Amino acid sequence: MTTRRIAIWTMALLTLAAVLWTGWWFYAGRFAIASLQEWAEDQRANGYDVTFARVDMAGYPFRIDLTVRRFGISAPGRFWAVSTDETTVSFRPWNLNRYTLKTAAPVQMIAAALPGTRQSPIVAGSVEGTFHHARDGQTHVLELVAKPISGPLGLSVKEVGLIGERPARRATDHEATALSGRLELVDATAPALFPPGLPNRVTAAVLDFDVLGPEPGQHGSALRRLSEWRDGGGSIEVREIALAWEDLNLRGEGTLALDSDMRPIAAFALDASGVPQTARRFQEAGLIDDRTRRFIELGTGLLSLGRSNSASIRVPISAQDGILYVGPVAVGEVQPLIPGYNPAPAAVAPPPKDDFAPPPPPPTVSEETLGADTPPRPVPVPVPVPSQ
């Protein structure tokens, strides 16, 4: 009898535990769906366009999988937009602060700062990652890996990794860190970014940075919020920037900001190796002559004196007033971060243009104008005749 009672109580306790666990599982899933809907409403109130068809819940009993169908989000004015047909957010019912993300369909992205993406979006075959939603003054951490990636003008990337950290407290001054990130790129091809005759494959690239400055308000367009960040003394401290392109290897650090015309202001110091080999490639491509190549090789030799690696030199690169400098030499122009941005009003308003007015008659040319290039003919002076 005692054994039977123990078995009955055990079954009853197990049944009660299963019922309670099932109730908690459904509660946690519904809470997550409600949080997603609340987040979407908050973004819409701030001017973003967030859409999704429906959310399906699965994964019982030890996991909650929320599959979002036809998800899309775009910034005001479609400054950027991201969309995918199916993405799944998963978490454990006993840990609501850590989520995993995985897409079962390609992810498309457009951005105004990336030419050609409005007509042909950048497409990632798959995206996977995790998000740690920390509390009590800790940081929020997002980790993503996207591969493979294709885009306009022949863009192709094997893999891209992104890590972003955001403090729980809002940045309020120009020295506070609003966002930290690290971007790693592996095996990229971009024919449109390189002149004909040069290799267009980048083996690897790294960008490790901190975004400093007061965070702008939640409302308003992306341009307005970017202007508020700039006017509040915002800047980007690049802790590490690295690039491996054929024989050329760059590694360094620097600072980046924006001027009143939304053009980058930059100051970087880079250690460069493989400069003579790269100069020879430029000569073979017809971009520089033999004399320029020899000057580059001579300058590389002089700058590398006293360094442990004779092939490595320290190169300062800066951008100021829309001009890009390598050392003291101006090498090109720097365009505004937002294409077509020009905040300066015209000094004098142009006269109204009549699209239906007839064109003005062609200017007439006089004989004096035709003979303007020839010296003037001498004018005869009358000679007085003596009176008789």
Rank of each mutant, 00 (worst) to 15 (best):
A7K: 14
A7Q: 08
L16R: 01
V19T: 15
T22G: 14
W25C: 11
F26T: 06
Y27W: 12
R30A: 14
Q37M: 12
E38Q: 12
E41G: 13
E41F: 15
R44Y: 06
N46T: 10
T51G: 04
A53T: 14
R54M: 01
P61Q: 00
I64R: 12
D65W: 03
G72S: 14
S74C: 02
G77I: 03
R78M: 01
R78G: 05
W80L: 01
T84Y: 09
T84I: 03
T84L: 04
S90K: 15
R92W: 05
R92D: 06
N95E: 04
Y99G: 01
A105R: 15
A105T: 11
P106I: 02
M109D: 02
I110P: 00
I110N: 05
A111K: 00
L114Y: 12
R118V: 01
Q119K: 13
P121N: 09
E128Y: 05
E128G: 13
H132K: 11
H133D: 08
A134V: 00
D136M: 03
L144R: 08
V145A: 07
A146Q: 08
K147T: 13
L155H: 09
V157Y: 09
A168D: 09
A168Q: 09
D173N: 15
G181T: 00
V186F: 11
T189S: 05
A190D: 11
P196E: 04
T203Y: 13
A204N: 07
A204K: 13
A205I: 13
A205C: 14
V211H: 07
G217P: 03
Q218R: 10
L226E: 01
R230Y: 06
D231P: 06
V238K: 01
A244K: 10
A244Y: 01
A244V: 08
W245A: 02
L250Q: 10
G254Q: 06
L258N: 11
M262I: 07
P264N: 06
F268E: 07
F268L: 03
L270Q: 05
L270R: 14
D271L: 07
V275E: 02
T278H: 05
R291L: 01
F295I: 12
G299A: 12
T300L: 00
G301P: 00
L303T: 01
A311G: 12
I313A: 12
R314E: 03
P316F: 15
S318I: 02
A319K: 12
V326S: 08
V329A: 10
Q335V: 02
P343K: 10
A344I: 08
P345D: 04
A346F: 11
A347V: 02
K353L: 06
F356K: 11
P360H: 10
P363I: 03
T364E: 12
V365L: 12
G371T: 11
T374C: 02
P375K: 14
P376N: 06
P378S: 09
P380T: 08
V381N: 04
P384K: 13
P386Y: 09
S387Q: 10
S387L: 10
